Simulated scan of single mutants.
Amino acid sequence: MPAERPTIVATSGGLVRRDRGGVDWAGTVHLAAGLARVPVGRAPRLTYLGTAAGDQRSWAAEVHAAGERAGFRTTVLDLFPMPSVEDPAGQLLASDVVWVGGGSVANLLAVWRVHGLGEAFRAAWEAGVVLGGVSAGSICWFEGGTTDSFGPVLRPVTDGLGLLPYGNGVHYDSEARRRPLVHELVASGVLGETHCSDDGVGLVYRGTELVEAVTEVPGKGAYVVRRGPEGVVETRVEPRDLRG
């Protein structure tokens, strides 16, 4: 069964480091699998895209291992040097969850457009496949956000897929320039209303509505930044703790 409504889980999290090496999927990814309403007895089908980091094979191995430990049926969809499946759009539609890794959101968007994946992601989203990701894999679903894709000095990116009609600010508490740049971009109108996440926080959307924030890490927050008549206003959204 697909999600009840088009669903996106946009995060600054999703992975946790293991004590003896490697990574595990963290709470936001398990939440995405739950929102996909996978039938009892069937493993969630998760498709991972590492386009933003250049489809690193060593990282793909980590993703497969994390998926095995989580009980997911994992497919890594590479686009370098060519698509790793015959029908990328069909692979997205056949998934329960599509998760996009971090890296360069500018390069990710360019490569996806060459392969016509913008339309494919929209079709999957509208069909009830849960879309999600971290960092670049969060910003991509929005109209734009802040990025280091162009160099060490953060700059705006404004040509996201636009499934969600907002800006997106990731790593809001861990990189000093992120918050002030979001405020500057909203003040100037480069970005409209912008939704931001501290590290470890996810933003959950049904359709285009932000329905909740969730966190894998205590004390973290989410934020909505808007331009008002007297300047930029930032409102904290208290996240639900996924640890119970």
Rank of each mutant, 00 (worst) to 15 (best):
G101F: 08
L185G: 00
S12I: 07
L154D: 06
E184A: 14
R240I: 14
I139R: 02
D24G: 13
C196W: 08
A33I: 09
D55N: 13
D55Q: 10
T7H: 08
V182S: 09
A222M: 09
K220V: 03
T158R: 07
M82R: 14
P88K: 08
V130A: 07
V204F: 01
A60K: 06
H195D: 12
T158K: 01
R18Q: 13
G133C: 07
G207Q: 07
V29M: 11
W141T: 01
G132P: 02
A89S: 13
F121K: 00
P88H: 07
H30F: 13
S197R: 00
S138Q: 10
G50D: 14
E184T: 11
A43C: 08
S135M: 09
I139S: 04
G27E: 00
P152M: 04
G219N: 01
L154W: 09
S174L: 11
G145I: 01
P88F: 11
E175L: 15
V204M: 02
L181E: 10
E119I: 10
V76C: 14
R42K: 13
G202S: 03
G22Y: 07
R73D: 15
V190I: 12
V224H: 03
V232E: 04
S84Q: 02
D199E: 15
V105T: 10
G54D: 03
P39K: 04
L31M: 01
